[in-house]
Design a binder for these strands. Structure first.
Lengths: 223, 223
DNA sequence: CGGCCTATTGATATCGCTCAACATACGTGG
DNA sequence: CCACGTATGTTGAGCGATATCAATAGGCCG
C-alpha cells in the first residue's frame, strides 16, 4: 500500500538560476535562504509555530499524509513558483518531500517575513498574491480530484500539469511524478492510472514518448 | 445596488449580532458592507478585477461550476467565518449562490481592503490569516474528496461538517445542503450518497433525525 | 387535494479495485 | 560483457463497488 518509489527522473537542466529569478518573489530576496534537496529527502518542518515558508525554485515537492487505513495520499504537488508552509498549523501531520533530485527551495523564516510585511506594504501585497495563487491552485486540484470517472481524473490531471509545467526544449511535457504518485494524488489505483493513460493514448488524445513524456494531440487527425 | 439590511435583519436579534462579531474580522469592520441573500440567489461577482471579497456571517454559500459534460461541481462550500472571492481572477467561471435563506455576508471592496492593508499592518496580518484559513479548508476538502470509496467520502464529509458547524441548541448537526449538493460536492451520484448515509446509520456510526440532522455515535455500543 | 422537490430503495450494466503475471529500465557485482 | 535485483510500468481476470435508470415515499406549499 505504500508507494515510496525511488524513481529516476531526468534531473532538471542547469536553468535553475533563471528559474530562481522568475519563481521566487524579489520582494523577499533579502529574507530568502536558498537550499537544495535530493530525491525523497524530507523538507524539515520541525520548527513549529515559528516555522518556515517555502517557495519552490526548481524541482518538485509533494505533501503527503498517511491515513489510518495505510493508504498514502498526496495532498499537494508543488512546482516552481508555488509557495507552501502556510497551513502547517492544523492537526494534519503532513510529510513534505522533494520529488526530484536538485530540488531547490527558497526558505523564509516566518517571523522575518511577517516583520517584512509589517514594514513594507508591497511585500505584504506580494504575500497575499502568493496565498491567493495557492488558493487558485487548490481549487483547480479539487476540480481534478473530484472528477467522476478515472479517465476524467487522469485527463484533468494531465491538462493541469500541461498548464503548470513549462514545455522543455524538446516538445512534450515531462511528468515529475510516477504512476504511483499520480494514483495517490487522484485517489485511484496505480493500474487504473496506467490503463487510463493507455486509453487516452489509443484514443488519440495524447501521445507518449516514454512513460514520463507526453503531449496533447489537439487536431486529433488520425483518431 | 448595495443595501444595508436595516429593514429586514433585526439588529436587535441576538443571534445575528453575535454571529457578526464572531465571524467577520473586526479589523475590516469599517470597510464592511453587510447584505443578506435569499435561497438560491446569486452573489454578484460582476465587478471584475476591482471586485469584492466576502465573509460569510450566517447561512451558507456554494461555489459551483458547470462542466462541459453538463455535470455540476460544487468546488467550495462556505460557512460562517469563511472568506471567498480571492481567486476569481482565473479562467473558471464560478457561480456563487446562497444556499439558505437569510444568508448574510460582509462585503469588502477589494481596493478598499487593499488600501486598508497598506496602511495598517495588523489588517494585513488579519487578511493573511484569513487566506491561510482558506488554504487549510481547501486542503481538508481535498482529503475528503480524494477518499477512495463512497462511504469514506461521505463519512469524511460528515466529520468535516461536524467540525465546521457549531452544534445548535438541540443536539445533532444540521446539514446545510441537500443530497444533490453533497453528491456534486464529492463527485459521486446522489443515490450513492443516500445509500452511504443509510449504511452509516445502519452500521451505528451515525444517528439521523430527519434527513438533514445527524449525530456521530462514538461509543457505538449496540453496533 | 395536486404539484414539486427531496430522499430513499431496487435492478442492472459498467467501472474500477484487487490479485497476478509480465515487461522494461537501471544499477550492481561478478 | 552478462546475471541478477529492484523499482517502475503495463496488461489480464474476476469480483465488488458504483453509476444509471426506474420506481416509490415523504415533505412542503399553494
Amino acid at each position: 500500500m505504500f508507494h515510496t518509489p525511488q524513481d529516476h527522473v531526468p534531473s532538471t537542466s542547469p536553468k535553475w538560476r533563471e528559474a530562481r529569478h522568475t519563481a521566487a518573489p524579489a520582494a523577499f530576496q533579502s529574507a530568502a535562504l536558498v537550499r537544495h534537496w535530493h530525491r525523497e529527502q524530507e523538507i524539515c518542518e520541525e520548527e513549529g509555530i515559528n516555522g518556515y515558508w517555502y517557495c519552490v525554485i526548481s524541482g518538485a515537492v509533494r505533501k503527503c499524509i498517511v491515513q489510518t487505513n495505510g493508504r498514502r495520499r498526496i495532498v499537494d504537488l508543488l512546482l516552481p513558483g508555488d509557495f507552501f508552509g502556510f497551513a502547517e498549523r492544523d492537526e494534519h501531520a503532513f510529510t513534505v518531500q522533494a520529488v526530484t533530485d536538485d530540488t531547490i527551495l527558497a526558505c523564509y523564516s516566518r517571523s522575518r517575513i511577517e516583520q517584512l510585511c509589517d514594514k513594507d506594504p508591497s511585500a505584504a501585497r506580494e504575500m497575499r498574491q502568493r496565498a491567493f495563487a495557492t488558493i487558485s491552485r487548490l481549487q483547480e486540484q479539487l476540480l481534478v480530484v473530484g472528477s467522476m470517472t478515472a479517465i476524467e481524473k487522469v485527463r484533468a490531471f494531465l491538462v493541469h500539469m500541461a498548464r503548470r509545467i513549462p514545455e522543455g526544449s524538446e516538445d512534450g511535457i515531462v511528468l515529475p511524478i510516477s504512476r504511483y504518485d499520480i494514483a495517490d494524488h487522484l485517489g485511484i489505483s496505480v493500474e487504473t492510472v496506467s490503463r487510463a493513460i493507455t486509453e487516452l493514448q489509443e484514443s488519440g488524445s495524447i501521445s507518449l514518448q516514454g512513460p514520463r513524456r507526453f503531449r496533447f494531440v489537439w487536431p486529433a487527425a488520425n483518431a
